[in-house]
Design a protein around this nucleic acid. Sequence first.
DNA 1: ACCTGAACACCGTTCAAGT
DNA 2: ACCTGAACACCGTTCAAGT
Lengths: 241, 241
Amino acid sequence: VADAVESTSAGHADPAAGETATGRGSLDRQRIIDAAVRLIDQYGLRQLTMRRLGSHLGVEGMALYHYIPGRESLLDGVVETVVDNLHDDPDLKLVGSDWPDYLRRLALAVRRTAFAHPEVFPLIASRPTTTPWTRPPLRSLRWTETFLRAMTDCGLSGGTAIVIYRSWSGFLLGHLLLDLSVRDVAAAGQEHDQALPLPVPDVIEYPLLAGLDPALLRENSADFERDLELLLRRLAAEFGH
Amino acid sequence: VADAVESTSAGHADPAAGETATGRGSLDRQRIIDAAVRLIDQYGLRQLTMRRLGSHLGVEGMALYHYIPGRESLLDGVVETVVDNLHDDPDLKLVGSDWPDYLRRLALAVRRTAFAHPEVFPLIASRPTTTPWTRPPLRSLRWTETFLRAMTDCGLSGGTAIVIYRSWSGFLLGHLLLDLSVRDVAAAGQEHDQALPLPVPDVIEYPLLAGLDPALLRENSADFERDLELLLRRLAAEFGH
DNA sequence: ACCTGAACACCGTTCAAGT
DNA sequence: ACCTGAACACCGTTCAAGT
């Protein structure tokens, strides 16, 4: 009956249709959110529409309101889901007593998440947070608790743990957003043709920029790790490793 | 005739009406963008609508398309305008030869801008950048040139200037976004009642958080300046002040 | 030259009605 | 119980027509 939705060619304005209709298995909140994440990853946030999301789930769009209060709440769920997926990262299982090492592994795991969901990360970064305990990018009560616990288990005081939480969060947020903004430029360059020199702007007016290979500005993973090490060293020196 | 638009009580869904109709003086691109900035500051990005923006300018909304290609381009203009306003900051006039001091003054100026336009800053942070030379938060060719010039004028090499540009940008981006996310929680708290303890969530499940004054997580300007000094000291040590 | 009206193809959301 | 159809109040954008 409502098994697999066929790629109907009727909707002239929906090239995204005929995608994957999960088909069997009735709806629930998490299934809807997971589909939303996939849609955002593939087509961008702008394209995520209640109606389109519904049609990807083989349903009429208005049906989603039985499971989710509205679009804003859906986006909150998306952020929560992506952030909480980190809990399954095997790299983060063993904490040990070396907190700088834990911070390093956690930072790299968040970085992997950011690059796996580059369209979701800006949401993680700038959605208004709803509790005073959480901060981007680890914006969930569970993660904040996990973070502080890892620090205090290593013998740090609560106050120190919070100072570290703040500095580490700020570092990560800024650097990941910077990396992602570069990724976008690169992607835009590929779209037009292969490796176009970009719609050449008026760089000529700016002598320093004109004589500069833009590749030098690209933040790569090596730069990130270097700055991360410097932060960790600074914190270790201040609070004892 | 079309002088000052009156605060008509007809539009039941537009409490923002009756605001300021600039009235005299015909439209132009900059005037439209300035009005957009004011609208975003007052009512948030979601409320910025071509039609509403038009009505605030005493015009029909469709008229804006004679001056601006579309909404996306309008937002680009908003970002550009807010960022370029920094050029008029008197604190940044004299560069001298002490580049860490310049970085400090520039960082504080950007911070003032972020807090003056808290609804615009996320746009500055996460809009896809269109050239490979610019990075948030100083995302304009002119500013990137100014920044690099200030560094090289102090005797630093181009390569060093770029490394500093990256680290400084990442630091600023992350910390300002963190500060703004707190500001939102505070604002939300005020809306409900005066200083409500917030829609008490399930913090109880998390022992560390439960015994924690959320005020400790609040990043204040002192924390920001402390972390800034640490960054500047680190850079000065690495590249010579 | 500059703006408006009407129209098009969408949105999010509500709710009575269908099965 | 779960979904749909129709409706409402909006969107951004285009374009012929008005002044």
